[in-house]
């Protein structure tokens, strides 16, 4: 058991975690943040993507006790009180969401990309999202959405 202090979606959180608990388990099972999905639990699918200090990582392969003091952003923290984030808005507008299971991970990976480079090429977008599997869309509209969302960022 470890006492863990971290920031989740901007809020300070303090809780006891078992040494072998993953960040994904803690988010979903302890904090009730079920927006982060589990599609394989082995690092193969990307549905569990969260931002750790702004970088997209797979929470199913992060030991919770190792993120002491760090900042985690999950899908629940992306939209503001005044509405969807530009990435979410673009996904919605162009039809990049079907079943929605890959969506949280896709949105977070896209957001991290655009924060570094708001004008990525289509192939750069594809590369950045290539660890996030989507079985529904064939990715076309997801790439469209990221391209469009980038325009909302200052170049």
């Amino acid at each position: 058991m470890k006492l863990l202090r971290l920031t989740v979606n901007g809020d300070p959180v303090e809780l006891g975690v078992r040494d072998e608990e993953t960040l994904l388990q803690v988010l979903r099972e302890r904090l009730g943040l079920t927006g982060t999905k589990q599609g394989c639990d082995l690092g193969d699918c990307g549905s569990c993507t969260v931002l750790l200090d702004g970088e997209p990582v797979l929470s199913c392969l992060v030991l919770a006790a190792t993120v002491e003091g760090r900042s985690v952003e999950t899908i629940e923290g992306v939209a503001g009180a005044d509405g969807l984030h530009p990435v979410q808005e673009a996904f919605d507008e162009v039809g990049a969401v079907q079943c929605g299971f890959c969506t949280p991970g896709m949105v977070l990976a896209s957001k991290a990309l655009l924060e570094k480079d708001p004008r990525p090429s289509r192939s750069e977008i594809r590369r950045a999202l290539s660890g996030n599997l989507c079985r529904c869309t064939g990715y076309v509209k997801i790439v469209d959405a990221v391209e469009r969302a980038g325009k909302a960022y200052p170049a």
Partner: peptide
């Protein structure tokens, strides 16, 4: 999920 076996985690 695929839970991990138990262990003690050291964080040097």
């Amino acid at each position: 999920m695929m839970p991990l076996p138990t262990f003690r985690l050291e964080r040097p």
